[in-house]
Write a protein that binds this DNA or RNA. Structure first.
Lengths: 227, 227
DNA sequence: TGTTGCAAACTGTGATCACAAATACACTGC
DNA sequence: GCAGTGTATTTGTGATCACAGTTTGCAACA
């Protein structure tokens, strides 16, 4: 299993799309920290291509609010404030909660097989004495997105991806710093979520997801590193 | 009042942003029809600037699924199928319904003043014997977005804008062809919506909006011009 | 008259160049 | 030793060029 699973597009036909997949992977996996400044030229030379595709990718990320341009026209990954995290959390609960509720009613056998596979992968990683955080983060992401995909609303996927792009840097950065959380909160929430999905109980599935999302957000906020 | 009110950004600092505002305005106002092909070069010369800013804007629109690239790499405004309209409608009900419910609880006096202003403008236009469709469309958009803005969730706005960008071409194109609908359905829905907002009844506001959105979608679907 | 073939025009993509603004840094003057 | 100032570097933006792929249109042939 590739760690950097191409979530956005399986085989980008254009160089700009490839750079976008590259950068958004970095963002979602928390390998870029809030406040980090990006240089178009540096990225271009590091990837061995011209500035043009990099500009395209960065422009798109800026449009998604996954990156921001300062008044200086410099581009960096946005610093997450407590207020901003709270706002995005409310939006995530509304939108991802909706997707989960739909998924509970719409999943097919194939959907559920894939969901269970990702759930098992995540649990397996968490049970280890020394979990591979990068792998756990990826499995967690794959689990959530396989559920959302089962809702049968493909137009909703880019929207949710945009939300994860925004919270990715803080969520995963923090999970990396304190791996104990994935052992406690996420495990229980995921179990409830899986059970609710299995019996097609949309209401309960939404509730479990809400606990999962709010739990993660509260955990970050409690660490008090947000401006 | 400017007809093409800059919804996205008041004064685009970059040429690419200006082109984006230009094109998204065309899309939202239904002045570009589904299936229309766009040429980067033509747009560039028509706007009197190089191809670069146009590419930036079009790339962003493509990322929003407001435009699509064919296998030929040609770019056009997507054709709306009945299934696609139904899907986006469900998503709109979920997301815009959420925003409306939040707005009902969060609006300030200033918010409500602006909302009422747009509502009055819309009603005034509809009461005319020969309504100016372009102006009615703009007023309707301003009304909805002033409500969503009152929710106090700025991160939600680009998401909703993306949805309107997708449905704009068919909704407005059709409204243009048959202006009778805005006199019937929208008026009643808006009245219910305004009343519910005024008494901070989020549930009722969401219900009124749902009727508004489904009504428009059903009206389009009933005309049977969708593939 | 209908069909095939070829050439000219046009398409988007990527690289490169030009430029103005902002930053970094060393040097000079006090 | 320190503040102020100059230059040199680096930044993003926009324009231009080069190229491969496709579409278009017209002419020549059957």
């Amino acid at each position: 299993m590739a760690l950097a699973a191409p979530l956005i597009e399986d085989e980008p036909s254009t160089l700009g799309a490839r750079v976008y997949a590259e950068l958004s992977g970095l963002l979602m996996r928390g390998e870029l920290s809030p406040g980090d400044k990006l240089s178009l030229r540096s990225i271009a030379v590091r990837l061995g291509l011209s500035m043009q595709p990099v500009r395209q990718a960065v422009d798109r990320l800026v449009a998604d609010e996954a990156l921001e341009v300062l008044p200086n026209r410099a581009v960096r990954v946005p610093v997450m404030t407590a207020a901003r995290l709270a706002e995005i959390t409310r939006i995530r609960i509304a939108i991802e909660g909706f997707a989960t509720e739909e998924a509970a009613a719409a999943w097919t056998a194939a959907d559920m097989a894939e969901i269970s596979r990702h759930d098992a992968a995540f649990r397996r990683e968490c049970r280890k004495r020394a979990p591979d955080l990068a792998r756990a983060v990826t499995a967690n992401r794959d689990l959530h997105f396989s559920i959302y995909r089962a809702a049968g609303l493909p137009s909703l996927m880019p929207i949710i991806e945009g939300l994860w792009l925004r919270v990715g840097p803080v969520l995963n950065l923090d999970m990396r710093a304190s791996p104990e959380r994935i052992k406690l909160g996420a495990g229980r929430c995921h179990a409830d979520l899986m059970a609710a999905l299995a019996r097609r109980d949309g209401r309960a599935a939404r509730a479990a997801l809400t606990v999962d999302i709010t739990g993660a957000a509260k955990f970050i906020a409690s660490r008090g590193i947000l401006p």
